[in-house]
Structure formats: structure tokens, C-alpha cells
Nucleic acid binder design. Structure first.
Lengths: 195, 195, 195, 195
DNA sequence: GATGAATGAGCATTCATTCAT
DNA sequence: CATGAATGAATGCTCATTCAT
């Protein structure tokens, strides 16, 4: 009596669910970027044009939603990291470009960083993105060291830490993050590499 | 036998009120340092051994209490800054010592930084403490520049920014903040000052 | 056997929400009538058999709930006013009947008047009910004047004021409000209309 | 051992207490008249220039203070009633003058009426003032009846009730209370006393 | 799957009143 | 007697999450 897959009726078996997930995530990201953690779940649902129930079907908690939004942002950064990796690697400026991308991205969405921080306990990526980013950064470091623009003892963890600092500066608005990167790169040069 | 000001004896009219204020502030600071903003007002009152009413008599809102706790922490830092100013100024290591103090202090109370950030919108000092700290830092910078350990274009704003970065690294646990300071001071040396 | 709208059967999506709203309003009205403003929101929710959240979904604040309850009472009065309008208009006793209805209603729920007064700042109706009541009263006045039972200069504002007086007498229990209406109607007769 | 009346020291044994009571009462009356029940006890104390403790020494509760303030206002009305009694009694207009005084007084201090109502449950006088007022009103009624301006069946209770109505009209701002008195006096004339 | 009404623990804040000094 | 700091019960409202339809 029930007509589940309904042969002939071109409904939308799974595509619609996927679409809803994307709608929710996009709405969440935009709202969190703008207003941070204060955004309420029903508000996200409304902005996405779905009910709260649907939202919770895709993201089991607010924390999960914030994490997903933050992760998406890191995915974008990863994209850029890979692009930067490839472009003229001999120049050894890849890491600088990478960190400027990160800074620009964070500066454009301070709310999301704060939300991730207070929901997740960290504003750093987790899961696959994290691993991929580390690989990409490792490559950038290696390039810089090969090109003689980065000190030999620089590690991925150091860069990770610098991003943490960058994020702090941007979120708290404690200064010009470009200046921060300039100072930092001064310290990242090979020792004895004065003018 | 006459115990008028009597250290430890009985009094109330004003001394006790002041004492209660201090008790509340101390309790609040300890709790906020440990668990951040989540600490509830009644809990602070209980820990201080007073009623909520007393707490509110001294601090009109949770925000005010968080601010006062954060300010107190900055006052401690200011103390150290002034001490550091005086001690062998010719060595030019004052700023480094200052930033290590700040790092140590922030690392010891991550919750308070977060609470201040989300209650106040900033984790930086305000009011008198701010001005005094800026003066102290300016002095440290001047000493370092005179001693040839700091680049000539370093400003108070730069240090302010570095503290923001330091705070971010510590709060997010994104790395070893001492390593961060090491890298940073590498970048703060006078240009061309390689080994 | 098909019970789609099924009187008494199972439904929810919207009908039940409406039902909850009505339950809350009824509970609120009963409680406010009895004990006035002192009634607490959780208590209303309990009496209505819903959670506080539901109560707040339908009425955004205590004030809104009190207003709605008061408005509902005025709607009842409006009903009676319209009925009174129709019944033997030639007798010219419509206004008297109206004011007796108002008196009876107010006397039966002193708490609600007080609650409305202190929550709203007035115990008079607002919105649509107000306009409709004024129309109804205007009609009653016109009838009375046509029948020669009311003085020609009597206005809706006068009646409004008398209701204010009636309300005051009832709320403060300063006397028999029926006696008040008797005296008042003595003063509302056309001038020179002594026996 | 105790030196109560302190022979020789011209301090202030009781006069000062009396003065404090008066100060508190005056402050309370002014504040309640202006802002009603919302005025807080510490605020009254501050306005009176005394501590809350002193306030509570003279008035055991907020309710008692409100009552005293209201009573004081009635005492003023009583004064006027007695004055009005005496002045050309043959004119028979004493009651009208009395009610206009009452109206004027109530209109000048709506907050106090409301405060008394909600603290005491009534806005009518109690204690001695009440008895004295009733006597005075009875005299005014008798004069009016003797002069032929008031109906024979008018009682003190009727006047009491009219004051309740007057108070309601003024407190709720439901109309021009002078118009109310005009209408009322129309109904208070001896029957058949048309022009 | 989607919906959104319902839930209810949780929390900052107020203010009449007390009582140690 | 005066003082005013301390008290703490009381209360309106929020919002992440659930679940009947």
C-alpha cells in the first residue's frame, strides 16, 4: 500500500537531504561569522529555510554545527595552501603567503573564530582537514628552507602556534596582524641572515 | 591592652565591608581563572562566604566582577613590570622578562582571559591600569633600544599586539608560548643584528 | 470511518498550539482574577498543564499575558454590549444594562483589573476591542437619548469615565457599585426630567 | 549605671527622634506621590538623610510607611473639610467643595493613591482620621440637605463611594474628574429638583 | 524525512528587612 | 539611638534540544 521509492515519480531521494545540509551549513557559517556564538539554533534554521528538526538531523548539536562551519572555513584555507604550494616554489615565499591568507580569512570572520573557540575549546581544525593542512604547511616550510628564507629549525608546530597568535590578535583586535606577520617573519629567517 | 586598631580583632563599619569586597574578588578571581565565565554568581558568593546581595553591593553585575578580577590580574603584571624596569636596566632584557611574566600569568589563569574576553569584549586592561602599563612598557622598550637589544622601530602598540598573540596561543593551547617569545624576540632584534 | 477532522481525535500541528494558547490564557485569566499580579509565570504554566517555554512562546512577557487576559474580559463585555444594543432598543435602558454588566464583570474579577492596571498602566482595553466597544457604547447612548432616558450632552468619554469610577469603587471596595450606578443614572437623565 | 536623661548635657533626648520621623515621612510622601510603590526603602532613607535602620525604627515596614504617608494626606483633606464646614454653611455647597478638594489632592499625587492601594488593599483612610472625616462629611451632608441642595437619602457611605470612584478615575486617568463631579452632583440633587 | 511546538533547567539580578557595631 | 552592610528568597525569562505529527 505504501509507495516508498515510487517508480516513475521523480521526487528527490537523497539529493534534497544533501541540499538541506548545505543550506544549513551556509546559513550557519554566515551567521556565526557575523555574530558569533550568540546566534541561536532556531535562527539558523530560519535563515536556512528549514525547521529546527531538519537542522538537528544534520548536526546533532550546536557545537557540531559550529565545528562544521569552522571546518569549512579551514577547507577553504587548505585550498589556498595547496595553490600556494604549487606557485613558484623556488621563491620560498609560500609560507608568508599562506599566513597572509589565513590572516585575511580570520579577519573576515571574527565571530566564527570566537564561536569555535568557545564551543570547541579550540579554534584549530580537527579531523581530515587538520592532517591535510599539516602536510601542506610542511611542504611550504620545506620549500622555504630549501630557498633559504626560513630557519632550519622551524616546524609545523611553530606555524600552528603562529596561527594561534594571529587568531588571538585578530579576535581581540589587539593590533595590525600584518605587522605581526612582518615581525614574525623577521624571526623566522635563518639566523645571521641580516641585511 | 587597649586594642583599638587591633590586628585580627573585631571591627565592621568600613573595614569589614572592604574585607568582604576583597574576599569576593579573590573568590571570583580564583573561580574565573579555573572555570571561566561559566561560574555562577551565587557560586562566587558562596565561595567568598557572603550572600549574593553582598556580592552585588560591591559589583553591580557579573560583567563588573569579571572586569575587576581581570583588572586585578593586570595590576599584578604592572607591579612586575615596574620591578623589571628597575632591575639592571643596562642589560636591555626587561621587555623579555616582562613578556615572560605576562605569559606565565596568562598561562596560569586561562579561564579568566576567556571570561574577560566574552564579558568585556576584550581581554586587555582598561582604566588607570592600562595607562600605567603603557608607560611601563614604553620604558622597557626604551631601555632595550638603548641597550641595543631591540629594533628602533618597536612601539608600545607592537608589544600590545604581541601580548594579544601570546594570549591567543595560551588560550587556544596552540603551542609552547615560550617558543613563541623566542621566535618573536628574534624578530625584535635590531635589523642586521645576526651573529 | 474516515476521521480526518475528527472531533476529539488526535491532531497537533496547529490546532494543538492554538489549544495550548487557549489553555494558557484561560489558566492565566482564572489565576489573575483571583489573585492579581502576584501570580507567577511558572504557576500559570503549571495550571495550564504546559511548560513555561510554551507559555512564553504564546505570550512574550508577563505583561503581554495580563493584557491578553484583560482583553479577553473586555471581549466578553463587548459581546454583551452588542446583545444589549439589539434587545428592545426603544426602552432606552441599554446603557444601564451595559454598565451593570461591566460592574458585574469587574466585581467578579477584581484581581485582573488590578493586574492590568499595574502591568499595563491602565485597566482599559486597547486595540480593536477598544474601538468596537466605543462604537457599541455610542449606539447605546444614541438609543437612550432617542428614548429620552439620557441627557443630550452625554458622550462616550463620559461613559468611559464612569467605568473608570465603577472600576475604582469595585477594586477598592469602597461601596455598593449598584448604588453608584443608581446615583449616576440620576445624574444622566435629561435635565429637568424630575418626577 | 545608665545615664538616660543625662543631667547637664543639652543633647536631644526625644526631639531628634521626632524630627527624624517627620523627615522620613516627608521624604516618603514626596517620593510616593511622584513614583508610587516602586520607590525603595533605602531610597526613602537616603532622601530623608537617615539610614535605613532609622527609617525602620519609626516605621516597621514599607506598608506602614505608605499607610502613614497616605494618612497624612487624609489629615490635610480633613483640615479642609473642617474649614469648608464652617464657611457659609447656609449655601449648602460644602460637599461639592469638599469633593473638589479631594479630587485636587488625589490628582496632585496619583502615585501615593496607587501605593496605598497596593500596599494596604485600600486607598481609604483608617484609624482616627477616618472617624473624623466621617463626622465632617456627615456634617456637610446635613448642611446640604438642610439647604435643599442634596437628596434626603444621601449617606456618608455614598460619599465614601463617590470618593472611591473619583480616586479610580484619577488614578487610571479615565476622564476629567471635574466632569465626573458635575454629573454626580446632578444625581445628588433632591429628586424632582429640575430647573 | 521534515516540521516547529513544547520543554524546563538554569541564571542574573532585586529589595524588604535584620542586626552587629 | 543611628547606621548601612549583609542577607537570600524570590522571579521573569532564555534557548538548546526533543519528539509527536
Amino acid at each position: 500500500m505504501s509507495t516508498p521509492p515510487a517508480p516513475g515519480g521523480g521526487r528527490r531521494p537523497r539529493a534534497d537531504a544533501e541540499r538541506n545540509r548545505a543550506l544549513v551549513l551556509a546559513a550557519a557559517r554566515a551567521l556565526f561569522e557575523e555574530r558569533g556564538e550568540e546566534v541561536q539554533m532556531p535562527e539558523v534554521a530560519r535563515a536556512a529555510g528549514v525547521g529546527v528538526g531538519t537542522l538537528y538531523r544534520h548536526f546533532p548539536s550546536k557545537r557540531a554545527l559550529v565545528e562544521a562551519a569552522a571546518e569549512q572555513r579551514f577547507a577553504g584555507i587548505l585550498e589556498l595552501a595547496r595553490t600556494d604550494c604549487t606557485r613558484d616554489p623556488e621563491a620560498g615565499r609560500g609560507l608568508a603567503r599562506y599566513l597572509h591568507h589565513v590572516g585575511g580569512t580570520l579577519a573576515a570572520s571574527p565571530g566564527l573564530t570566537a564561536a569555535a573557540q568557545s564551543a570547541t575549546g579550540t579554534s584549530a581544525p580537527g579531523g581530515e582537514t587538520r592532517g591535510a593542512l599539516e602536510e601542506a604547511v610542511a611542504a611550504l616550510i620545506a620549500q622555504g628552507q630549501a630557498a633559504g628564507t626560513l630557519r632550519a629549525d622551524l616546524t609545523v608546530a611553530d606555524v600552528y602556534m603562529l596561527v594561534g597568535g594571529l587568531s588571538g590578535i585578530i579576535r581581540t583586535g589587539s593590533g595590525d596582524w600584518r605587522r605581526f606577520l612582518d615581525l614574525a617573519f623577521e624571526g623566522l629567517r635563518p639566523r645571521g641572515d641580516g641585511p
